[in-house]
Design a protein around this nucleic acid. Structure first.
Lengths: 371, 371
DNA sequence: GAATTATATGAATCCGATC
DNA sequence: GGATCGGATTCATATAATT
């Protein structure tokens, strides 16, 4: 299923893992081409030998002790570079997720804001089975922090509110997610039976991220691909991915892992949508079709007010003329009003919301539309 | 109980609220003199227009002048200044707590690290009853973040591991704390019945902070004192406080509030250093939430014995200290005892089993739902 | 008085298509 | 591109009002 979309002169390598430094590679990809970025960068400079100083000299392993201020400076430069390269790739309506711990997440969050990303939420991954603090010197480090941000203020980011609400048993999804660590069968092992990657993320985490903030067919980029959790879940969910990873052993593990994944079928990928996605029906159509007649009276939700339907699909009530919404808002002294649920008509002596008339029209529209 | 400790040439004004700008005032206080700082600075919310609930009622926004900053640059300068003034005041073994939301916490965290504070944990306050996201455009903002940091790397900070474990019913305290918002009787009102402060913090939060990271007699400074939650809990727990607040109306409310507080007696303040058993709802939460107060007396099922509640959720009765279960078992000469049904408190002259308090907490938490 | 129902509210960066 | 306006959107808890 590997494919390449060309955009301008440069190709976008989909469903592949690119080998090399993510900053260089991201700079070589076309701008404004990616829907979502998920990034799980290295947390701590001192404990890893795979980072570079600004002059590109390699940082030695743990025994290379330098003070924390130099360390932060180098980490900030690294963060600044990969975040700006990432931002360039995002479509105007694109968004980014980053994940980190208290060692690095504050620096990432501040840099996100500095670069003009617009933070939408910080989300807490609450681990149901964290490693205890063995020495009893601090609180059990039982969570990690994710930051979700749009490319810029006012960006038209994707948020599948209804799908997430459904995932959460019908209650609005909160900013704290209880998800177990990645263990058991899901945890990839190398040839020796050791874990293939030290910080493999659970698929449940990516599932929630991708269902919630992308649509099928979207392009998801992960610049710190590791063993490919982002790619695996993207494939299952019918999203295209681009992975970037420097370590050959991680790439190999990810490649083998993703090859085994099957995409869910089309029906399974359809998620709950909100009313906002449904076609708009002007109230005038209700009158045009004779479902309500000019001169007929409508009654407010508490039956306190009446208004009369006019031939052009406006109402008149208490000497105020306007749309079903405007007249409702005026009578209630409210800033706004959904006229469809506010107004009722009489049928067999009972009050029925006019919204059922809109539903009838929508049902008819469905019949005429190809499925 | 107002007192002044002199240290060198300068006095340390204990258990008072100082009027004015916290940066200037902190600069005038003696260095290396404070054990703990708790800081709840303005969040820089950057709110735009009005927000209405689906029922059209208007959300009472935090639009106070003190939360207005022109830019991140201005906010960063403010953060840098108050944090450096605060750091100077801390004893070498001192520590700081800051609290914030995604609007400001990343900038505070980065600056803490820049100044040489050593982050010990980030802690998530998971709100059991947050305000929903009314427009369905983001995740419910259901938490705030606290950062706990020592004055510098290697600082000999205070951490009452066993007391916190006891508060958590024998299980190591985690970095995510479920605590309700400050509402009801605890929420201070002004003369008109409006809230006295827009962002009053729950006492349960400060209880956990102060029991966990200070000792009786320690000096706790709060540079953004507001209506004095830090001072109120410090007084209860036998810690000395220093408050700094600019707004006269907040100072007045705090003054009146703290005057009414009684310090728990000495016995109640001694916290446990032994291990506990492990049912599900920690009795410590009953104490933290103020459902029972340290020093309050409990009565055995036949009203033959009495015991006193201590600040860490243990009891003392007949010179025996321990969990509600342990003390009950000891008094009855039994191998075990269910403290929840054994112990009763007095309400309206009647004896009520403490188990109903556990039921209240369970109802609030209702953590059986997947998040 | 007890039980039930209605109302109020909390640190919030909360709309988007069409004209 | 700014203005207009249709119309979609909420959870837990405390307290007041009602039955």
């Amino acid at each position: 299923m590997t494919k390449t979309i060309t955009k301008g002169a440069v190709g976008l390598p989909l469903n592949q893992i690119m080998a090399g430094d993510c900053i260089e590679i991201m700079r070589s990809l076309p701008a404004d081409s990616v829907d979502l970025i998920f990034a799980d960068p290295p947390y701590n400079l001192q404990l890893r030998g795979d980072l570079h100083r600004p002059d590109n000299s390699k940082v030695d392993a743990v025994d290379d002790h330098w003070d924390q201020f130099d360390s932060f400076k180098v980490y900030d430069k690294f963060t600044k570079d990969w975040l700006s390269a990432a931002r360039r790739l995002l479509k105007p309506g694109g968004a980014i997720w980053v994940i980190g711990s208290y060692h690095n997440v504050f620096r990432m969050g501040a840099e996100l804001q500095n670069q003009g990303f617009w933070i939408l939420n910080d989300v807490v991954w609450r681990k149901s089975n964290p490693m205890p603090n063995f020495r009893g010197k601090r609180f059990t480090n039982a969570h990690e922090t994710l930051i979700w941000a749009s490319k810029s203020e006012g960006g038209k980011y994707t948020f599948n509110y209804e799908a997430l609400k459904a995932l959460n048993d019908g209650v609005q999804m909160r900013s704290d997610w209880v998800i177990p660590l990645c263990t058991g069968h899901e945890r990839l092992k190398d040839g020796n039976g050791d874990k293939a990657h030290p910080t493999q993320k659970p698929e449940a985490l990516l599932h929630r991220v991708l269902v919630g903030t992308t649509n099928p067919g979207d392009v998801v980029l992960d610049p710190f691909f590791g063993t490919g959790t982002t790619g695996a879940v993207a494939k299952m969910l019918g999203r295209d991915f681009i992975g970037i990873e420097r370590e050959p052993s991680y790439r190999d593990a990810a490649e083998a892992r993703i090859a085994k994944i099957r995409r869910f079928d089309r029906e399974a990928l359809e998620t709950s949508t909100s009313k906002r996605a449904e076609p708009r029906v002007p109230f005038g159509q209700v009158v045009e079709r004779g479902m309500l007649r000019p001169g007929e009276e409508l009654y407010s939700i508490g039956n306190r007010y009446k208004a009369k339907v006019r031939a052009d699909g406006t109402l008149i009530g208490n000497d105020v003329k306007g749309s079903i919404h405007q007249v409702g808002a005026h009578l209630e002294g409210a800033p706004s009003c959904n006229g469809w649920t506010y107004w009722h008509f009489k049928r067999d002596g009972k009050l029925v919301p006019i919204d059922i008339l809109r539903q009838q029209i929508r049902a008819e529209m469905d019949e005429t539309r190809p499925h």
